[in-house]
Nucleic acid binder design. Sequence first.
DNA 1: TTGAAAGCGGTACCAC
DNA 2: GTGGTACCGCTTTCAA
Lengths: 352, 352
Amino acid sequence: MAITPEGRSAPTLRDVAEVAGVSFKTVSNVLNDHPQVREATRVKVLAAVEQVGYRPNLAARNLRLGRSGVIGLAVPELSQAFFAQLADEVIRIAAEQDLVVLVEQTGGERERELEALRNPRLSLTDGLLLAPLGLTHEDLAPDAAGRPLVVLGEPLFPGPVDHVTMQHEAAARAATAHLLALGRRRVVLLGAHAAEDTGVAALRYAGYRAALADAGLPVDDGLVVPIETWDRQRGAEAMGRVLDAGVRMDAVFAMNDDLALGALRSLQERGLAVPRDVALVGFDDVADGRYTFPSLTTVEPGRHDIARIAVTMLRERIDDRPRGDLGPRVVAPDFRLVVRESTGAEVRARRA
Amino acid sequence: MAITPEGRSAPTLRDVAEVAGVSFKTVSNVLNDHPQVREATRVKVLAAVEQVGYRPNLAARNLRLGRSGVIGLAVPELSQAFFAQLADEVIRIAAEQDLVVLVEQTGGERERELEALRNPRLSLTDGLLLAPLGLTHEDLAPDAAGRPLVVLGEPLFPGPVDHVTMQHEAAARAATAHLLALGRRRVVLLGAHAAEDTGVAALRYAGYRAALADAGLPVDDGLVVPIETWDRQRGAEAMGRVLDAGVRMDAVFAMNDDLALGALRSLQERGLAVPRDVALVGFDDVADGRYTFPSLTTVEPGRHDIARIAVTMLRERIDDRPRGDLGPRVVAPDFRLVVRESTGAEVRARRA
DNA sequence: TTGAAAGCGGTACCAC
DNA sequence: GTGGTACCGCTTTCAA
């Protein structure tokens, strides 16, 4: 075993070979399950491996193979429950496929998302799953990443790259329709984005309008509340402003759960009962909404499928890299409207 | 530029050298900011780098350097807000130090935590941050990881390895004392662990008892509620059982925020007012507690410091590896009791 | 069935 | 200042 001045260095294939009394190539054959190795040698080698405590050097293997078994996942931030849960799923599914995940945070800023695409620190990954907020589809134009890429969430069509997205519009429409079906007529929309015509906000807004149209109702601009950053604080503040302004309403559709939970607080803070006075629906099905009181009706966007499909697609890209004959694909898994107490599902308030 | 049968392969140092008309070693010198390079060559080389679109191959560099710039982070799961926020901080701080983070999930199971220690898939990391739930300190005994290791959260003393932990006992004591200072006398403790004498639960329990003792109050075993897994559902169920059993109480100290938020729901579901009827304190300062209604009083365990110290310690271990003269260290940053509405801070309910 | 030798793409020591 | 050369540890033809 090689001893360096700095101390004991890790045993290598050669060390194992020496102990086993074979060539180091044979050791490699054994470890890689090559078909032709006599059982006797195999046993002998494995014993030697055990004895010297051999651990393969992945850096060397990666260099040789040109693949690392690592994929990158770039999300705005893990503090946002949706992305944390997405990362959870991705890591879990990747692990099933013997992939390991390097997580990067972009803050949702375009600059850093671009950097994630090019970042040399990430170049040891075989491919990248990117959940962008600030990117436009021009940014992705010509193989921007220099390696396999799958975009999550944002439907930056017509993209030259694979997308795993959501049925933003259809789901928003279903959510709004659910409120209308309860007889609500003045549905506040929380989270519109001003100058955006193709992003997530625009699509969900379109779904909202479609549902109103289906019901023969006009869009009341006074009910459409723009909020750029979809977090709880903004949700609470915006809801507060709307309420304090005396806007009449009987329902709220928030573009994500964080906004919805912020809004819920503001509603309750002002003594309004949910869902009696105001029914509330969110989007994302983040865990926090399940044990609030009332629990939150929301859209489950198919997070599990998104993660599974994304990892699978990326892996196909990685394997296909040499040939490159896969066209860009866009997939949006089925969503599910999860009806809970905030729109009247079995509210079980006792006493009171 | 090397062309393989499979297509264009990435340009290497040699390709750059050829274009620049220098030896590939010179290119390496330029890229590594070696002191002695003439400005002219440097410019020439950089132009060539640009021209051929050279991107360094990290696998090769890692092999040569024996370091990858990647650290591992193993947590139970990112779906738990506390760990997601911890991961957020760790990734952020690591990025500041030009480290990148590979995230692994253990489910909090001892087997998988052990696997994370040994996992060859992780062997391309320079070191590991491990947040264990199931490990005992014997598991960590003799350099179990085979590489630098820092343990987060659990104080598995007397550990032979670095720990960054929390002031579990002192913080729990402060939290309980806060409730007692409000005049509450029957404080339910949510989340005790049965057969555990040294883990997090035991330490927080000790803090709870200490605060009671400080106030000259006895421990009422009827108020100590065991819950093994600290999630919202369990918190809600346990709280529900206690309430339905008619146990008298005027406060709850939950061992973490998830339990507290679950409990909050059960309290409200039964028409009890928080904090009027029951005051509530959690532990962790997870983001979800800030915009519930009422917002949640909790312990901020110094998460930011924990992340920063952990990354720094790990980095020291990595750099020190050859010498190995650092003794194991244990650090527990300052905590902070964050008083919010669930213990009566400026409840601003309007109307109602 | 086993072994020798040639790299994978860099870095670093040490001449020139 | 610049460049030769060895080598990090492993995989993979190709011989033996």
